[in-house]
C-alpha cells in the first residue's frame, strides 16, 4: 500500500485541520467548456505549498461549501498552487464563477501520493481518463524534472471528445519530445480531429513499455480504472505495479468523518492513491 502520510503538520488555519487557510486566485484559465484551472497564492503564512503528486486539497468556497480537489500543478515548483476543476456541482460551479483576486479556503495537502520515487529505474505508464489527467499532471512534471531516473515514460490519455482534452498546449509540447510517448484518444472524433478514436484501454495494448519493469499509474472514473487495470494486466503488468486514485465522499479529508470508507480503507487518508493489488479484491465489490 502506498505510504500513509504520518503528516501531523498544520494543514489548516491555526493548526486546526478543520479550518481552511485563505488563498487568493492569481490566475484563472478555462481549459475546456466545463473545466478550469486556478493558480492560488496564500494570503498569509508560508509562500510555498509543498505537496506530492497525487495529493489533494479540500477547497472551500465562502458560504457554498467544500470539496476535495486534487492538485494539478508542478510539485517541483511549490510556489504555485494549481487546481484543475470540472464544474459539476454547486461548489465547483461557484468556483467557476470566481474571478482573480477572490479568495478560497484551502486545507491540505492531504492523502497519499503517486509512487514517483519507488518508480525510479522503471518504465512509467500513466493512464488518464477525462478529468483524471489533472492528478497525473504533477507526476509528469516530476518525471520530467527527474527524467534521467526513469526508463520509458508513456502517457495514455482518453477524453470524450477533442474539445474535452485538458492541457492541450502542454500535451503538444510533450508529444514533440523524443523522450516521451504521449498517446491521446477520444471517444468521439469530431471536427478536424486526426488522432485516435476509441477508449483509452485500447491504447494499452500497443503502448511501448516493458511490462516486467514498469510502474503504472491510472487515474479516471472508477470504471475506466477497472478496465485499464485489466488491460495492463493483460499486457503482463503485475497488480502490485499498478496504482489507482480512488474517489469517495470526503467531508473532512483527514480520516475523522467516516464518509469515505471503502472496506477498511479511508480513501482520504489511506488513499486516494492505492496500490491496485491492495484494493483489487474490494474494487469490484458492489456497494462497498
Amino acid at each position: 500500500m502506498a505510504e500513509i502520510q504520518k503528516n501531523k503538520k498544520a494543514i489548516g488555519f491555526k493548526d486546526d485541520p478543520m479550518m481552511p487557510r485563505q488563498f487568493m486566485i492569481q490566475r484563472f484559465r478555462r481549459d475546456t467548456v466545463d473545466t478550469f484551472s486556478m493558480e492560488l497564492k496564500p494570503v498569509s503564512g508560508p509562500k510555498k505549498f509543498d505537496f506530492k503528486p497525487g495529493q489533494f486539497n479540500m477547497i472551500y468556497v465562502f458560504g457554498v461549501g467544500e470539496v476535495p480537489i486534487s492538485i494539478s500543478g508542478d510539485p517541483t515548483r511549490p510556489e504555485k498552487l494549481v487546481h484543475t476543476t470540472r464544474a459539476v456541482g454547486n461548489v465547483t460551479k461557484a468556483m467557476d464563477s470566481l474571478k482573480s483576486g477572490r479568495t478560497l479556503g484551502v486545507r491540505g495537502p492531504l492523502g497519499t501520493s503517486w509512487p514517483v520515487e519507488e518508480a525510479e529505474g522503471n518504465d512509467v505508464v500513466l493512464v488518464a481518463g477525462g478529468i483524471g489527467m489533472a492528478p497525473l499532471r504533477p507526476v509528469m512534471y516530476y518525471l520530467l524534472a527527474h527524467r534521467e531516473n526513469y526508463g520509458k515514460i508513456v502517457l495514455l490519455y482518453g477524453a470524450r471528445t477533442p474539445s474535452d482534452i485538458l492541457y492541450q498546449k502542454e500535451l503538444e509540447k510533450w508529444r514533440s519530445r523524443l523522450d516521451l510517448e504521449v498517446h491521446i484518444t477520444v471517444d468521439r472524433g469530431t471536427g478536424s480531429w486526426r488522432g485516435n478514436v476509441g477508449v483509452v484501454t485500447n491504447l494499452i495494448g500497443r503502448a511501448p513499455f516493458d511490462h516486467l519493469n514498469c510502474t503504472a499509474m491510472v487515474c479516471g472514473p472508477e470504471i475506466m480504472m477497472r478496465f485499464s487495470a485489466l488491460g495492463l494486466q493483460k499486457r503482463g503488468v503485475e497488480p502490485a505495479d499498478i496504482y489507482v486514485s480512488m474517489e469517495r465522499n470526503m467531508k473532512c479529508g483527514i480520516g475523522l468523518c467516516g464518509h469515505c470508507q471503502m472496506g477498511p480503507l479511508f480513501v482520504c487518508k489511506d488513499g486516494p492513491v492505492f496500490r491496485y493489488s491492495d484494493i483489487k479484491e474490494i474494487f469490484t465489490r458492489r456497494e462497498y
Binding site: N90, V91, S97
Partner: peptide, 10 residues
C-alpha cells in the same frame, strides 16, 4: 432554501 438560493449552494 432562501439562503442557499441567494448564495448558489445546495
Amino acid at each position: 432554501v432562501v439562503s442557499a438560493f441567494l448564495i448558489g449552494r445546495k
